[in-house]
Design a binder for these strands. Structure first.
Length: 503
RNA sequence: GGGGGCGUAGCUCAGCUGGUAGAGCAAGGGACUUUUAAUCCCUAGGUCGUGGGUUCGAGCCCCACCGCCCUCACCA
């Protein structure tokens, strides 16, 4: 960018940088020995200390700057919060001149004693001031009325969602509540890891680049390996690799990582997202329900300190056990239709009567119609945490047939706020059955269903060695974080959400 | 992909039936030795998303394109 194209604001900052460097003041220092974080420094002051509080050294961005001539107040913001700095020409001498070349957003270090101003704010009386990094581009910050820990009010400021997502660094820099979302996210994921570790699960890493994709119904991203001169797919699920590990004798495994699905984007879908999958040998989907109840209720208690939270205009209660409802029974209670015996035409008629007038209804058959009926009549009502059990077989090519009903599978999904949060089943481990299901998937693909799974021969080979009976579960971590952090869009819980390139 | 909305100063926004662009904050200069959305005086800052068109004249009307948001479709 040429000098002419830069804004006048940036030009002024560059001139200050030049003036500082001409005076021998580096614009970008190497390090600063910090004694306290801002919030800790404020805590370190006791009222009986008067004007002679402890000596502290703090560092941060200049978030507020008020110059009164021979004195200046500024506020430093660091990871812990803000602390006020009081600077006087008669105490700083020539160093006070540096101040005239500082701007909002510069990083500085300050050393001095703590005192309380006559308006009651714990403040550092600066004995020294060190420029640590010059900010050459002003942050899009508003004007903040600092009301303490979380009571601050910002006037103006960055609100354009496009800029917030594209320039997340600026969004984070000016919004401590955005930083808090990602701190909460890390805390939640950390707790989930400990929960699984304590239950004897082994955290593993399986390939992101796969010669065949599988484990879910989705279109993949495709790439190419030059040395091998072959196509590779970014994984859409971890499932088939994790179950190979069960064959290998790793009895409890889990992975938290990114899956990639080449599909639409909206407030609950990002093309890459974080998935937790866990598999437990010698268990079934009932064990997975207990695992999910413990995990979801535990992480909510950990992060929010309660199991009853206000969301979607109501109170959600995560106290186990969660509600349970049969897929077939649930649909029948809502609309009277028995999916076990309903014909395709009956299902289409019901869907049309419920206003679901997708013009491709006529092309849907069997399982996909059943799924559509479920989504139309039952799913919108699943606001409280609810397990939906025993899905029809055609919907679940990797799930074990139900022990009491060959038309169903032993599968459940957990819904919260009418949104799917987890998906689990008793894992299909009969290689011959699995082979037939793959072949059926291939037939569906030939018939035009693009979201079927390819036939994975190596996976069949693994099953032939004998996979123990097992329960498995997948949990969409981003959606779980949306629920915990009370964020309406997946983009608010992903640091750098997918965006079109800037024009 | 369909429908709707939006795009104006660094940020947040105004801008009338079409007459050549405004405010607050931020910025620059000045005053001010306990301020806190500091205050006071002065100043500067814009190819109005991009490209066409209509018009004597377009931020405003028309067309196309780009980007974002909402919604529907798609999507375990």
């Amino acid at each position: 960018m040429s000098e002419e194209e830069r804004s006048f604001v940036e030009a002024a900052r560059r001139e200050k940088r030049a003036a500082l460097e001409a005076a021998g003041v580096p614009a970008f220092a190497y390090r600063f020995e910090r004694s306290h974080r801002a919030a800790d420094a404020v805590e370190a002051y006791q009222d009986d200390m008067g004007e002679n509080g402890p000596e502290v050294a703090v560092a941060g961005r200049i978030a507020e700057l008020r110059s009164h001539g021979k004195t200046t107040f500024l506020k430093l913001e660091d990871g812990s919060g803000r602390i006020q700095i009081y600077l006087r020409r008669d105490q700083l001498g020539d160093a006070y001149d540096v101040l005239t070349h500082l701007d909002l957003d510069d990083h500085v270090g300050v050393a001095g004693r703590l005192f309380r101003t006559r308006t009651g704010e714990v403040t550092v009386r600066a004995g020294s001031l060190t420029l640590l990094s010059k900010s050459l581009r002003p942050l899009p910050r508003g004007k903040t009325q600092d009301g303490g820990a979380d009571g601050s009010v910002t006037y103006g400021g960055l609100s354009d969602p496009e800029v917030r997502y594209r320039q997340r660094y600026a969004d984070l820099a000016v919004h401590r509540e955005v930083r808090a979302v990602f701190q909460l996210r890390a805390r939640a994921i950390g707790w989930i890891r400990r929960y699984l570790d304590d239950l004897g699960f082994l955290e593993v890493e399986t390939p992101v680049l796969q010669p065949l994709y599988g484990g879910a119904a989705a279109r993949p991203f495709t790439t190419h390996h030059n040395a091998l001169d072959m196509p590779l797919y970014l994984r859409i699920a971890d499932e088939l690799y994790l179950k190979r590990l069960l064959v290998g004798g790793l009895e409890r495994v889990y992975e938290i990582g990114h899956d990639f699905r080449n599909e639409g984007m909206d407030r609950t879908h990002n093309p890459e997202f974080t998935m937790l999958e866990a598999y437990q040998a010698y268990g079934d989907y009932h064990d997975m329900m207990a695992l999910v109840e413990g995990l979801v209720s535990g992480v909510i208690q950990e992060c929010l300190g309660t199991l009853r939270i206000e969301r979607y205009g109501t109170t959600l209660d995560f106290t186990p056990p969660f509600a349970r409802i049969q897929f077939i029974e649930g649909v029948r209670e809502r609309c009277g239709l028995d999916l076990r015996t309903a014909t395709d035409e009956e299902m289409r008629a019901l869907l049309r009567s419920r206003g679901n007038a997708g013009e491709d209804l006529a092309t849907l058959t069997g399982g996909r119609l059943q799924d559509e009926v479920f989504k139309t009549v039952l799913e919108p009502h699943l606001v409280q945490p609810t397990f939906v059990l025993d899905y029809p077989k055609p919907l679940s090519p990797l799930a074990k047939e139900h022990r009491d009903d060959p038309a169903l599978t032993e599968r459940f999904e957990l819904f919260v706020g009418a949104r799917e949060l987890a998906n689990a089943f008793s894992e299909l481990n009969d290689p011959d059955d699995q082979r037939r299901r793959f072949e059926d998937q291939v037939r569906q693909r030939a018939a035009g269903n693009e979201e079927t799974q390819p036939h994975d021969m190596d996976y069949i080979r693994a099953l032939e060695y004998g996979m123990p009976p097992a329960g498995g579960v997948g949990i969409g971590i981003d959606r779980l974080i949306m629920l915990i952090a009370d964020q309406p869009s997946i983009r608010d819980v992903i640091l750098f959400p997918a965006m079109r390139p800037e024009g």
